[in-house]
Design a protein around this nucleic acid. Structure first.
Lengths: 246, 246
DNA sequence: CGATCAATTGAGTGTGTTCAATGTCAGTGG
DNA sequence: CCACTGACATTGAACACACTCAATTGATCG
């Protein structure tokens, strides 16, 4: 059995009774597409872990890479330390989404995964997952799709980011969050909940916090959004639905 | 049998006798790690295609996604069209490297793959590759590693790119090309061959051609490089070996 | 309540962009 | 052989956007 030590708090709960079928994030989990038997086989290798408190690490950079983590509830930021000691956020993940895939094929994790709010995750030991992929083609396919999508999203971020000015990037980011929130909760809303700090967002968008703040202020002045601490309301409804953020 | 029509020139040669064992790019191909039997199985599904002349497409955006392409000789750029009609280069691939993986999990290719010089590729029909992965765990693992590396490189490009100024990015890019060229040819040199235009490079680095030109001029003035049309010589030898470019 | 960290606002600076002109080179046809 | 063409590359000058540095306000927690 895997024993994980996470930062300062030590071991987390392990609930072997957790079943994928009872999972609250079932409708948006990557497992959709598997039949009941396949799901059962998957359930057997999954371990539920949590709760991670805000600021706690699900995995840390340089930890041996062992598992992928499907987020059952909560939110996570992925960050690493660039040369110069800056903390760089390279992604946000929410329930139903899978993290850890950035480190597949490497011996160690390439970044930290930090909980932004109280978070539960399903640990998928990668070696067992690989073995299972050999037996369940649908699972292998599902993983490949997951990786392909990740590559596309990141790629698209590079390409889009080049041509967009700060305000555009912010709007695209917000719309992306909004769209994902809609998928998660099966309902569409204009209000985007922000579990991360504005600083995290700025880092993710490649801006200084000051620049992000100015952009948000301007967007609010122009009536595109309503800005507050941990939530932003989208008022424009129209443009900007195709953007890759994660 | 797959019939590919590529742009204006129609069908390309198919050489069924091609054997992975005889391949010139064998030492740097993703297949390293497979034993002889596994290699034979792979050879069975591979099709050699070419020659593609400069400017010709190996695949085009919106073509149905069917295959990955391992480049046997030559060079390829990956580009797509952003909103606004700009052509955006998102990657360069050279012999021994695999392209097409950005579209895994999608029904169609997400970008064009354009030959930069006379190019031969090994077509790997993805469906057959998936089936083979179920039988050959080492192959499945190899593909996963390939995808993981791609994710990491792209990610790192995003993160690095944020903090680097034009000149730094150029230097990192050149060093990256240099390192890859060393791997390809099993020898180290300071001269980087550039099959792509400066405009392509600028696009890839997220710069205007003018800005790239200025950066190159300045780097040359300062004695870091020797700049010419299709080749750049690196003179600094020291910094800048860790950068993800592709 | 003060301490600490996040967020905002302001003023001045710098890097890359934009627009326009010029230079270079390969290919083509007179 | 040389003038013409078109694509690529370089250079200059003015501008815009995001950055830097610094000060202020706001939020949260002990």
């Amino acid at each position: 059995m895997v024993q994980r030590t996470t930062g300062k708090t030590g071991l987390h709960l392990v609930d072997d009774k957790q079943d994928c079928v009872r999972c609250g994030s079932h409708h948006c989990c990557f497992r959709s597409g598997l039949d009941d038997d396949q799901m059962k086989a998957l359930t057997r290798i999954v371990r539920l872990r949590g709760p991670y408190k805000p600021g706690e690490a699900i995995f840390k950079i340089e930890d041996p890479f062992k598992s992928l983590f499907s987020i059952q509830s909560g939110a996570v930021k992925i960050e690493s330390i660039s040369q110069g000691g800056n903390r760089d956020v390279s992604g946000f993940y929410f329930s139903g989404e899978m993290t850890g895939i950035e480190s597949i094929g490497d011996a160690r994790y390439n970044n930290d995964a930090i909980a932004l709010e109280t978070t539960w995750v399903c640990e998928l030991p990668f070696h067992q997952l690989e073995l299972l992929c050999g037996v369940i083609p649908a699972l292998q396919r599902q993983i490949m799709i997951l990786l392909g999508e990740k590559i596309r999203r990141t790629n698209s971020m590079v390409v889009q980011g080049r041509h967009m000015k700060a305000e555009q990037r912010v709007m695209y980011f917000l719309h992306s969050l909004c769209r994902r929130e809609a998928i998660r909760h099966n309902l569409s809303s204009n209000k985007v909940h922000l579990p991360m700090t504005k600083g995290d967002i700025a880092s993710y968008l490649g801006l200084r916090p000051e620049s992000l703040s100015r952009a948000l202020t301007k967007l609010q002045r122009e009536g595109n959004i309503r800005n507050s601490a941990k939530q932003i309301e989208l008022l424009d409804r129209g443009v900007a639905y195709e953007f890759a953020c994660e």
